[in-house]
Design a protein around this nucleic acid. Structure first.
Lengths: 202, 202, 202, 202
DNA sequence: CATGAATGAGAATTCATTCAT
DNA sequence: CATGAATGAATTCTCATTCAT
């Protein structure tokens, strides 16, 4: 069946992407060779170039796939008529779960894409900016509704919130923070509580 | 005379380090060649290797120099009998001022070391961890004195605080946040207020 | 078809090895560049590294190929029920013929491996030693059978024999000894006669 | 005193040469840097170039010094009215003693000069050839006087003799032959007896 | 004489990418 | 689609030699 053939073709592409995630996570984007990806995927060297124009495109693809999901999720959350606290919890939860579900992929995105955001194509930077802006928009409307303080700019608040989330992921990636099942849930609550309530007693 | 000679000997080394900061900031550690550093410094290629064993060692040196200053500053702040809020403000201020004083250097440290989980970040993990621990210790003692809530772990609080600071710097580095003179001062206050007071109205 | 394809794949590897022999012989292992080998072989620079891990590995391969043949030959000779004089003549003949057949290769082996006490010679010591030991074993059994004097240790006798052979090759290599067709045959006999009968009249 | 000054100057030169012997023996001519020689000698880097034009010249000097002594000795031996057996014993003894007295220097000469005789300046090759010719002359006159067989060419006989001697030294250098006090004396006798009497019983 | 900083050509090796099959 | 041999530009690091002091 031609459908089966097409599925198989897609399968190999997926195989390569998944292998790339593992290899990038293990050795870093710069630290690995295209050959390593092919080996990890168990496919021929040249096949990588059949499906992807370049090594960069593999990373681009991985990033865009997942970052796109996140943007969709943030937009979806934003559209709901929920308290800002719940919205932020949903976003933090989504990112934390993304890491829980596929730590290698999130490691690659944070370490190899976010880090190199200015050396890579500017397109990534726009995607990243879009996330901050969506979060900023959530903050902004919550400020208008009186849910959040107005003396801190929305953009800044978004950075503080996202920075806290990313730092927790970095902590896990660098083996600085403990990483047990309960830590994931706790992290989400801690982040929201720290950012919304502050560290000082109320 | 011999002192002058010794200073002159050191001069070129410093010249190379300063040139490396600019080149790393402009092209990224991986994106530049050792030749670029030598050119930028106006010295012969080989002299770079006279003073440094490798390209890596240059980055290591830059990182350790500045990170060491930061660790000293945090330790100094910790030792003072001030409210935790002032301590955190002093630390955030120091980091923000480090960026204001030498944005290229901080960019290099954040982009090429702090987030490089597979290369430099990993090899300087102890130094990086030390910073978190010092901040965590400040939080912990403030929790004991009742200045801060006790239901969020010190380590986690330290991550949230440092994450917010670093993200603000990242915002400047990646041209996401506005970067005017008043923004630097404002940033320090915003960070402390966000982390201590929270975004929700009190 | 697939056999032909496989042969073709091997062809380039052989091309490189043969080119390396000529280049090493002409310029010496240290005196040539990998680019010279690639040029001489008429292949792209990178292909050398496709087939060999390093410049060293090329020399290792050349040495082991031929030295292995020699060890086999010596072992084969040793196993035959012939007079020791004939055995030594067979070994000397094999080495002399090796030179006659491929003087460049033997030059490389002697100049760059066998005498290189600090690099290749040291790392191939076991193979080199094995040759002496095989020859020593031939001497030893000839001493037991009364064919050879017993007052000279087998190891020493092996060194004297091999030393004479190698020095003759060195003489050819360095243009000290005349090198005509009849010299090759004569050399074999001279060596055996010198070592077995001695230079003094009997 | 100006004499003392001049002696001191000479001392440093000697210091460098002696250090070079040790370094060359340890790491090989190609495997060491000029800096290693300076360090080993305990002198400043630049001083090496004050006394020698180049790294090559250091090796040249070492070789010519000792090889010259050997040529003198062979010529001296040749001039004496002694049996050829004694002459060869004197030459073998001189070379063996040279090694016993300064193994590093002989190692350097055999491994780094003799080996590279065709890549280095041709002048070395002429010196080496001169030694063979002197020995060949000794053989030739012994053949005329009936002390040695006439059916083996003098040049060839010289090669066999010198080859046996050098191989014994190589055996020591490569740790293949035992190297105790008595081995040195035995070696000399074994060499002469093997070459003059042959390995077959008389 | 003595020092060691400064120079820069050179070489091995790597690896993304192409291409013939 | 699949394969992996072939290409060659790029870059780090080495180190003999020079030179200013």
């Amino acid at each position: 069946m031609s459908t089966a053939g097409s599925q198989q073709a897609t399968e190999k592409r997926r195989l390569i992407l998944d292998a790339a995630v593992r290899v990038f996570a293990r050795e870093g984007f710069h630290g690995c060779r295209v050959a390593d990806i092919a080996d990890e995927a168990g496919v021929a060297y040249g096949l990588v170039y059949h499906y992807f124009r370049s090594k960069d495109e593999i990373l681009d693809t991985l990033f865009l796939e997942r970052w796109g999901l996140m943007l969709e999720e943030i937009a979806r959350v934003d559209a709901e008529p929920a308290p800002v606290r719940e919205k932020l919890a949903a976003i933090a939860g989504f990112i934390v779960d993304s890491y829980r579900y596929d730590p290698d992929l999130m490691k690659v995105i944070i370490v190899d894409v976010t880090r190199a955001a200015n050396s890579f194509g500017r397109s990534h930077l726009d995607e990243i900016r879009a996330a901050y802006e969506l979060i900023g928009a959530i903050v902004e409307s919550a400020q208008k509704s009186g849910e959040l303080r107005r003396d801190i700019t929305p953009t800044f608040a978004a950075m503080a919130f996202y920075g806290a989330v990313e730092q927790v992921l970095s902590g896990w990636i660098f083996d600085i923070l403990p990483e047990a099942a309960e830590d994931y849930d706790q992290a989400k609550e801690f982040i929201v509580s720290t950012i919304c309530d502050g560290l000082e007693p109320r």
